[in-house]
């Protein structure tokens, strides 16, 4: 380094910023508490309801990673959720694949689709990026409607067998399946945590903050954005394929634009750019859908009202508010 150092003393006694050991210890504690809550939850609430929450929370995590840490707003994330749902369901039902393989295959297909959609959409920025992702997702929806021999059309793919995990554990048992889904969810959460706190994640955050500057430092930002998009699509696919196994169903709803909207809702209500935000958001939104189901169309109205309140009053969502109270990153 050719820059003169004025005095060497400060370096030693400075407490380093992102001094990770402290932050990491806190996150580790948070994750342990979360794992504990997940372990107790099935004794308090219906496992099927919890699995629905976890699938949508995982979906929310993928979206949150892209927007909160990469600054990329995708309005077409249902494409990745839905494609994996169809692929997973098809592979399990007609291909006779074991559930774990069906899920992996689903996530992989979404990763591939994500790299293609990402490479196309990344050419534009901001609202145009969002519009292109929406248009591409609508394209997939259209294809899904037009190919009933693959997707089952309006009926979807029903009666998907849950099968046996690794040929051993019978997933027909809700409790057993819950344990597996909770495991997948936690693995997904740790994966996101690793990505956003990796050398790659650092560059993504820099690009989010100021892309021209990142370019002027010599980073080919487009490649970073496509990779982040692909990783996010893979996670969305993991959520979608898991959902298909849990509910034994893949349907047009999974690829519908309203599902893309739902994940935006989940993330913003929970707290954009926070680790736990999507989980809280999914809990709120899925609970509302279940408990307000009797009110029919009013569910949407209540959802809309909550969304408006969150966006206008709680800029950081529910978790953002808790962060402010407790003064620690969650």
């Amino acid at each position: 380094m050719t820059v003169p150092v004025l005095s060497g003393s400060v370096v030693a006694d400075l407490v380093l910023p992102d001094d990770e050991t402290v932050v990491r210890r806190r996150y580790r504690a948070t994750f342990l508490v979360l794992a504990l809550v997940l372990a107790i939850a099935p004794f308090v609430a219906y496992p099927v309801f919890l699995m629905q929450v976890l699938c949508f929370a995982l979906f929310g995590l993928s979206f949150n990673m892209l927007l909160g840490y990469g600054g990329l707003l995708s309005f077409g994330h249902a494409a990745f959720f839905g494609l994996a749902s169809y692929v997973g369901a098809y592979a399990a039902k007609y291909g006779g694949l074991a559930p774990e393989l069906a899920i992996v295959l689903g996530a992989l297909s979404s990763a591939i689709l994500g790299s293609i959609f990402g490479a196309i959409a990344i050419r534009r920025q901001g609202i145009y990026f969002a519009m292109i992702t929406l248009a591409l997702a609508q394209l997939l929806y259209f294809v899904s409607v037009q190919t009933p021999e693959l997707t089952g059309g309006e009926n979807g793919i029903q009666g998907v067998p849950r099968g046996k995990l690794f040929g051993l554990l019978d997933l027909a048992d809700d409790r057993m399946l819950y344990a597996v889904v909770a495991g997948i969810f936690l693995a997904g959460l740790l994966f996101v945590y690793r990505i956003v706190r990796s050398p790659f994640g650092q560059i993504c955050k820099a690009i989010r903050d100021n892309e021209p500057r990142a370019i002027s430092l010599g980073y080919r930002t487009r490649h970073y954005k496509v990779l982040l998009f692909t990783l996010s699509a893979a996670l969305a696919g993991l959520a979608g394929a898991t959902k298909a196994i849990v509910f034994q169903l893949a349907s047009l709803t999974d690829v519908h634009w309203s599902t893309s909207g739902e994940v935006v809702l989940i993330t913003l209500v929970g707290g954009l750019g926070t680790m736990l935000g999507p989980i809280v958001g999914a809990l709120v939104i899925v609970s509302m859908q279940n408990y307000l189901a009797n009110f029919g169309a009013w569910t949407t109205v209540v959802q809309g009202a909550i969304f408006i309140v969150c966006v206008s009053l709680l800029r950081g969502g529910i978790v953002g508010l808790v962060q402010k109270w407790t003064g620690r990153a969650l």
Binding site: R194, I195, P199
Partner: peptide, 15 residues
């Protein structure tokens, strides 16, 4: 980080 390389490593810790 640029000269260090490895900036696509999403699976490694920022440690």
């Amino acid at each position: 980080q640029r000269k260090r390389g490895g900036s696509f490593d999403f699976w490694r810790s920022e440690e």
